[in-house]
């Protein structure tokens, strides 16, 4: 499966590089702003980095859905389905590669943020002052934040996990579009509606679950739930592909 993953990684390499390039620019602006006391640089840097972090993770996910759609519905599909690999392996390589990429991208931005905070704290001297600077920047985007240092990471991971779950729903919808609904009119629309319904369904199901006491537990539960659902969806998607998919 590592070979399949290698090619999955290669398929969307370009956008990952572009994302990295933008990040580098943002980071450079941030550091220049910090060390040369160039306030506009700081603003540009922080906003670029934030946009990269958020949209990067979103984009990596959405692009994987687009790639999957292309891998099922164009001649390019032969590349995957001619290989002596079954649907679970082919899908698994995509899910694992994409999940890893999203997690690593997330982790990368988390670390970068932490590093930048540290550098800024050392540079400015007092973290309080620095947070005020950031708050000022954020107010320009009319976003208000309250920082809870311990819970940040776990919240962040829970969000990533639920994003991966959403992508798993997307994979299933795309496979259904190419199999069960194939050749029908409006198959794309039907699949999209299916995607929305299922997303709503799994969220509703989660809300029915008992609410744990601490925020930590809540997020851990959410994370576990997301992964469990993603795993079940992976099984269903692979099963449908194995039986029904004609590319």
């Amino acid at each position: 499966m590592s070979k399949l993953m290698k090619y999955e990684f290669r398929k969307n390499l370009l956008s990952k590089l572009v994302l990295l390039a933008f990040t580098a620019v943002g980071e450079a602006a941030f550091l220049l702003g910090l060390f040369l006391k160039w306030e506009n640089g700081l603003v540009i840097g922080i906003s670029t980095l934030m946009i990269c972090g958020m949209f990067g993770i979103l984009y990596v996910g959405i692009e994987s859905l687009v790639t999957f759609h292309r891998d099922l519905n164009t001649k390019q599909s032969y590349m995957l389905f001619l290989t002596p690999r079954n649907s679970f392996q082919i899908l698994g390589a995509k899910v694992v590669e994409n999940g890893l990429t999203i997690f690593l991208t997330g982790l990368f931005y988390a670390l970068l943020t932490f590093l930048d905070f540290t550098v800024a704290a050392i540079r400015i001297g007092r973290i309080k002052e620095f947070i005020d600077v950031i708050k000022n920047v954020l107010e320009n985007f009319s976003v208000s934040v309250t920082v809870h240092s311990e819970d940040i990471l776990i919240v962040f991971l829970a969000i990533l996990a639920s994003w991966i779950m959403t992508l798993a729903i997307g994979y299933l919808a795309i496979v259904l579009c190419a199999t069960v609904f194939a050749g029908k009119r409006l198959s794309g629309l039907i699949s999209f509606v299916f995607f929305l319904l299922l997303s709503w369904g799994v969220t509703s199901l989660f809300n029915v679950l008992p609410d744990p006491e601490t925020m930590m537990m809540q997020n851990l539960l959410s994370m576990g739930y997301s992964f469990a659902i993603a795993l079940v969806l992976y099984g269903i998607t692979g099963w449908v592909m194995e039986r029904k998919l004609s590319v």
Partner: peptide, 12 residues
């Protein structure tokens, strides 16, 4: 081994 009529290699 199967060879299709249409090209199917990745664009890159």
């Amino acid at each position: 081994a199967y060879m299709s009529t249409e090209p199917y290699f990745y664009a890159w």
